[in-house]
Structures are given as C-alpha cells and as structure tokens.
C-alpha cells in the first residue's frame, strides 16, 4: 500500500480556477502531485483534464483569452505567476502530446534541438545526450542506424518514443503526458506504458488518459474529473477498488463517459 502521508508533494494545486473567455473550464481544483509517482487524470471528454495538464507547463498561454486563478506551486513557486520565467518552467516540466509531433528534421536533430536552444554547442556532449535519451526512451536499438533519417519516416509508436526522448534530453523533472497513446496501436501502447513505469524512477509523471485500464496499469494516483470539477483523488488502488464518490463508481463501471 502506498502511504500518502510520507510522499513528497512535488506540485501543489490550490483553489485552481480556469476560464476560456467567460466559460469556466476548471472549478476550484485542489490536489497534490507526488514526487516520482505517476498521477493519472481520468474523466469523460471535456471534463478539463487536458486543460489542467496544460496549465502545469503554461501551454495554455498560447490560447488567447484565457485566465487562471489560484495557485500551482512547484518547488515553492507559483507557476501561474505572470512574472515567472515560462521558458525555464517548460524546461523543467516537459510534455508529450496526444499526437506524436516530431519536427520535420532528422531523428538526431529532433533530440539535439532541445539542447541547442539551451545554448549547448559541444558536439560530443550532444551526441552522448542523444544516445542516452534514445536509450532511456527504448528507441536506441531501432534508431541507432538511422539517426540521420527523417523522423517522419518512423512509425507512430516510434515517433511517440522519439518525442519522449526529445523531452528527456532537456532533463526535465516533471513529464506531462497528454493522452500519449490515443493514436497508437496496442503494441506501441504497451511499450509506452512500460516506458512510463521505467521513467517514474527518475521523474514525476502526470498522465491524461481516456483509457481507464491504462490509468489502473500505469498510475500510483488517480484523479477523476467531471465537468471541470475534481470529483475524487486518491491512490489508484483505492480509487479503482473502493471509490468514495458515486459518480466515480458510475464512470469506472462504464455507466457514462
């Protein structure tokens, strides 16, 4: 059993509200995301889970006419503070998207990009880092002989692992997965899930998923969201076996969603 009291909260979300224009998308969210644990966000479409995860690295800044209230504390600092350095935040909080989105560059360049924009010029270091990241993302064996091929020639599952490698190369502390397997086949999905299991040794992971089985397989904690509310949050084991809330139970048993 996981004991919630001794786990270290990496991210603390306090009274978080979020608006698209006048429409409220998140209502008064409070939860902790624990260090080196996998936290899954589940719930039906439109419940706000993607909106929430995109707040953790301020990707919602790119959407005009949005507004966030409340606090998200990462290492003592409120990352919603307009004065915070977003570039630095995004280096610390990496993200893997729903659809694999490698750049139209070579496999090597895709991973080197994150290092280059950080001002890294040492070729040897970049090469080592590319290899290391590909190994961590379990793509090295498949990619080592074709590092100079276009990344777009990889299969969907390989592309997604490349995106993970790209994210790992800049050494984030937290990794956000926004439905990473939504466009993948079952075998690729299995590989990504195994990878997430590996990665949680070193990284704090938040994953949005539509797939409840996936949440139960990969996560330590699960948050169930519904229409912008956080309905229930707890260890995955408890939430899936003895949900406290009726809605959670109904959703988990497939009554809606």
């Amino acid at each position: 059993m996981i004991d919630t009291t001794v786990k270290l909260a990496r991210i603390a979300v306090e009274n978080l509200n979020f608006f698209y224009g006048k429409k409220q998308a998140l209502q008064d969210l409070n939860l902790n995301i624990f260090d080196r644990q996998v936290t899954a966000l589940i719930g039906p479409s439109g419940c706000g889970k993607s909106t929430f995860i995109r707040l953790l690295n301020r990707m919602n800044d790119l959407t005009p006419d949005t507004r966030a209230e409340g606090r998200i504390i990462l290492d003592g600092k409120n990352i919603l503070d307009p004065k915070i350095d977003v570039v630095n935040l995004r280096r610390r909080v990496g993200m893997v998207f729903q659809k694999p989105n490698p750049f139209p560059k070579t496999i090597f360049q895709n991973i080197a990009y994150g290092l280059e924009i950080n001002g890294e010029t040492d070729k040897n270091l970049i090469e080592n880092k590319v290899e290391e990241s590909l190994k961590k993302a379990a793509l090295w064996d498949e990619a080592k002989d074709r590092l100079n091929d276009s990344a777009l020639r990889l299969s969907g599952g390989q592309q997604q692992r490349l995106c993970i490698a790209r994210c790992l190369a800049v050494e984030p502390e937290v990794i956000l997965f926004d439905e990473p397997c939504a466009s993948l086949d079952p075998i690729s999905t299995k590989k990504i899930e195994e990878l997430i299991g590996e990665l949680k040794k070193d990284y704090t992971i938040v994953i949005v998923t539509h797939n409840m089985q996936q949440a139960s397989r990969v996560s330590d904690y699960t948050a169930f969201m519904y229409l912008g509310d956080l309905v229930e949050f707890g260890t995955t084991e408890k939430l899936f076996t003895v949900p406290k809330n009726k809605r959670t139970e109904e959703y988990l048993s497939g009554k809606f969603g």
């Binding site: 690295n57 990707m59 790119l62 570039v87 630095n88 995004r90 280096r91 990496g94 993200m95 998207f97 659809k99 989105n101 490698p102 750049f103 139209p104 990009y113 994150g114 924009i117 950080n118 995106c163 790209r166 994210c167 800049v170």
Partner: peptide
C-alpha cells in the same frame, strides 16, 4: 502544423527560436 510550435515551446524554446 500548430503541433510543431507546441512541441518547440514545450521544450523551453522562446518564441523567436
């Protein structure tokens, strides 16, 4: 595609980069 831009921002690239 917007996804290229998002990927770049998510790695900590500035708007200019």
């Amino acid at each position: 595609p917007r996804s290229f831009k998002e990927a770049s921002y998510a790695l900590g690239a500035s708007r200019w980069q």
